[in-house]
Amino acid sequence: MTDDAVTTHDAFHPGRVWLDTNGERIHAHGGSIFDEAGVYYWYGENKEFTRPGNGIRTWGVRCYRSTDLYNWEDLGLIIPPDEDDPTSPLHPARQLDRPHIAFNAATGTYVCWIKVMGGDVQLSTVLVADSFLGPYRIVHRDFRPLGMNAGDFDLVVHPTDGKGYYVFERVHSELVWADLTDDYTDVTGYYTTHFPLRQPPFVREAPAYFSRGGRHYLVTSGTTSYFPNPSEVAVADTYHGPWTTLGDVHPDDASRTSFRTQVSSVFRHPAKRDLYIALGDRWVPGLAADASNFEREFERMFDPDDPERDLVLPTVDTSVADYAWLPIRFDTGVPRIDWRDEWRLDEFEDVHPS
């Protein structure tokens, strides 16, 4: 615990170190918010022990609780690491990434998907629980959805009929939108493909879905590992598309690095009118504000004719990664994200003003 026993916040300060109510750095990376009866749960990758060279990718899935989105109480690990089994998808060295949890109203269970990286193969594992806070048990382990290497993803649930979808990066080629089975623990086999692009850094990853006004939106990033690149937003009238690209969601960022962030998810505030919050990870907080060459460096890594294709980028210490939460504005229906050093929820109108 830090010297300050209690830490409180009354505003968002994107890019600054964000401490929980105990004064400790928050670790919920690649994260999402789950709203349950007015209580918010922020969960994601626990990177507290992930330092260069120690072999720890992710130390389980950590969760925090809040009623105001500013101040977060640490609830600990809702999915702890499996330290004893090196083959387990939950082992700290197995490279667990981007947990997403959806509630299945038909089964009354909470379903968590994770991706696990490893060499040339990226696998998926599914866990279920009877409570959001767990315990979670593995029900589908180390598989390739649709026979594909599945990278970054999002889970989407239709708000009225409960139908589930799984949108993921088919590694280094395209995005895939797949229907989930009724219990959300697998894919049915029906899918559509979108945004076919040639290799990193061009391939889209980190899909973050939201809907507004009956339309569907996806925010994605390019593939440059932990280094930032221009985000992109697309829109469709149906889940399976066709999807139309609307361009960089951060058009005023001259560095073309999405304000040095990667959007992990988009949260629609239930009590504010038209407030959508883009949850961004700043994986490399010490990166210079004008750093914008990572797309080219990653392009070289995948160029067989480049004599320096084995270029090694600077090592990243994700144990000190930060966050940048920013509101989304809509210009004639086009989502845009502006930088703000500070902002508050009371800047936005209540859904039901008193």
Rank of each mutant, 00 (worst) to 15 (best):
G30S: 02
W72C: 05
R300K: 15
D74K: 00
L287S: 00
M148P: 08
R62D: 00
G241Y: 03
E83I: 13
R16Y: 11
T318I: 12
F227Y: 14
P200R: 04
M1Q: 09
T181I: 10
E297R: 09
K115Q: 12
D74C: 11
T109W: 04
Y191Q: 11
F168S: 11
H9D: 07
F210E: 06
E349I: 11
D305H: 05
Y190P: 02
Y70S: 08
E297I: 10
P230W: 14
L279K: 03
M1E: 08
E342V: 07
W177F: 15
D35Q: 06
D305E: 13
F330D: 05
G76T: 08
L197E: 13
D322A: 09
L77Y: 06
D68S: 01
P327F: 01
A206R: 12
D182F: 10
T58N: 00
D237F: 05
Y323R: 09
D10M: 09
V156A: 12
D179G: 04
S131W: 01
G44M: 06
F132A: 03
W18N: 03
S231Q: 15
H352W: 11
R344T: 15
L275C: 02
R336A: 05
E73N: 08
T223V: 09
V284M: 00
P270D: 04
R141P: 07
G119L: 13
A106C: 00
T193G: 06
P52V: 01
N104S: 06
W339F: 12
D4M: 15
D290I: 03
W243T: 03
M301Y: 00
T261P: 14
Y165S: 13
W72V: 07
W42T: 10
T257A: 13
T50K: 11
R51F: 03
W339M: 08
R329Q: 12
V266E: 04
K47A: 10
S265H: 05
D130M: 07
A102K: 09
T192N: 07
W243M: 05
R25D: 00
R62S: 09
P228T: 05
N149A: 09
T58W: 02
I33C: 12
G134K: 07
N54M: 04
Y40K: 02
Y217P: 07
Y70V: 13
D331Q: 05
H240G: 09
V171G: 11
T245S: 15
W339Y: 06
A106W: 10
I337A: 07
T160G: 00
L133K: 02
P228G: 02
Y209C: 08
H172T: 11
T257G: 15
E48Q: 12
V263D: 10
D182A: 11
I56N: 01
R170P: 10
E73V: 10
V187D: 10
L197K: 15
R309K: 07
M148L: 13
S124K: 05
F103C: 01
I78K: 06
P251S: 08
T109P: 00
G60R: 07
P327W: 03
T107C: 02
N46L: 05
M148T: 04
V116C: 12
Y41A: 04
D274N: 14
D120M: 14
D350M: 07
F34R: 09
Y191S: 13
W243I: 09
